[in-house]
């Protein structure tokens, strides 16, 4: 079995506003092995993006990683805890882009429009490697070809706004790969692009991962993409991991009422009953609202009175390797082991 590359234990990232504290991520734990992909799914405001950002200590103000461990195994076998690093410090900057890279949802806003594509890739390469500009440029061109950009030696001198959405996203991926990271965090990498181009980008990510034996954290709201891309899945709702495990187990036998309802509410290709879609009542509560008990309880049709609305359930192992945060499955706590 492959070894664990990243172990996140009880991660807590909170946002501190004058009058209120928002628990954007509250107790997320998982292990990611070398070469594996884990998918973090959920709707807006569930904390999936903040989980990804926390791993790189990129949480925007006034947010802060305030608890838990983010253990990363370095190439030299040392294990460091990213949660303890200073967000603006030198050490974490050595990790960003080199050990762990991230690609974002909107390539138009995450690429700088006043620098050429090449400039931005070369900057990253030379930040982490002591090599000449000419050599870095050659590397950048070969990276661009690797991600399927035709005429890379011309594209390298173009600006992001001269490229199509798909090409921009490829350029972003090239940039993320520039220092050969062992973990790629992809935050909704295909949400802003057309389906046929989405298919290309997903195939590309799979190929690159295979070739480079890279681990990946895929953050998305699209359950179809998760089914296709990941080994393990974490379903998040309002900052909590409500269910997690192997993707086949979770899809075959979803346990949490939220996961069940979510899967039922999506129209699936080839389903001809044309029935009304089963819905989850209400909408995602405002994170400012002071919810007690289980976060999903106001929308849950299985909620147990004076239990679910008073006490928050903890994550329990309902079946082997399949975890759920719900009182319907008992009260036992789980332990995750680090690398």
């Amino acid at each position: 079995m492959d070894r664990v590359l990243l172990a996140v234990e009880d991660l807590k990232t909170h946002f501190f506003y004058d009058d209120v504290t928002i628990r954007a991520v509250d107790g997320v734990s998982f292990n990611l092995r070398e070469g594996e992909t884990i998918g973090i799914v959920g709707e807006s405001g569930c904390g999936k993006t903040i989980t990804g950002m926390s791993i790189l200590q990129l949480v925007p103000m006034p947010g802060k990683v305030i608890g838990g461990k983010i253990l990363l195994r370095l190439v030299d076998e040392r294990v460091i805890d990213i949660a303890e690093l200073e967000p603006r410090g030198r050490e974490v900057r050595k990790i960003r882009g080199k050990e762990i890279s991230m690609i974002f949802q909107e390539p138009m806003t995450s690429l700088n429009p006043v620098y050429t594509i090449g400039n931005q890739i070369i900057e990253g390469i030379r930040l982490h490697n002591k090599i000449s500009k000419v050599h870095a440029r050659e590397m950048a061109i070969s990276l661009l070809s690797e991600v399927g950009i035709p005429k890379a030696e011309e594209i390298i001198d173009m600006y992001s706004f001269q490229l199509s959405g798909g090409m921009r996203q490829r350029a972003m991926i090239a940039m993320a790969l520039s220092c050969n990271p062992r973990l790629l965090i992809a935050d909704e990498p295909t949400t802003a692009i057309d389906v046929t181009i989405q298919a290309q980008i997903l195939e590309l990510l799979k190929e690159i991962q295979e070739k480079r034996k890279m681990s990946m954290i895929l953050i998305t709201h699209n359950l179809g993409i998760v089914a296709e891309m990941v080994d393990d899945i974490i379903v998040m709702y309002l900052g909590r991991a409500v269910e997690q495990g192997n993707v086949i187990d979770v899809y075959d036998n979803p346990l949490h009422p939220y996961t069940k309802a979510l899967m039922r509410s999506i129209p699936r290709l080839g389903d001809r009953q044309r029935r009304r879609l089963p819905v989850i009542k209400g909408s995602i509560p405002d994170p400012h609202s002071n919810l007690k008990g289980c976060m999903f309880q106001p929308r849950c049709d299985k909620a147990i009175k004076s239990l679910c609305d008073t006490e928050e359930p903890s994550l329990i192992e309902a079946e082997e390797g399949h975890y759920v945060r719900c009182f319907l499955y008992g009260k036992k706590e789980v332990d995750f082991y680090g690398p």
Binding site: G166, E203, G224, A227, E228, V230, I248, L269
Partner: peptide
């Protein structure tokens, strides 16, 4: 994307851009 996590075969991917 197919909803079935067992089905990870390669799809016909359309080449080129919009």
């Amino acid at each position: 994307p197919d909803f079935n996590p067992r089905n990870k075969e390669k799809r016909t991917v359309l080449k080129g851009d919009v």
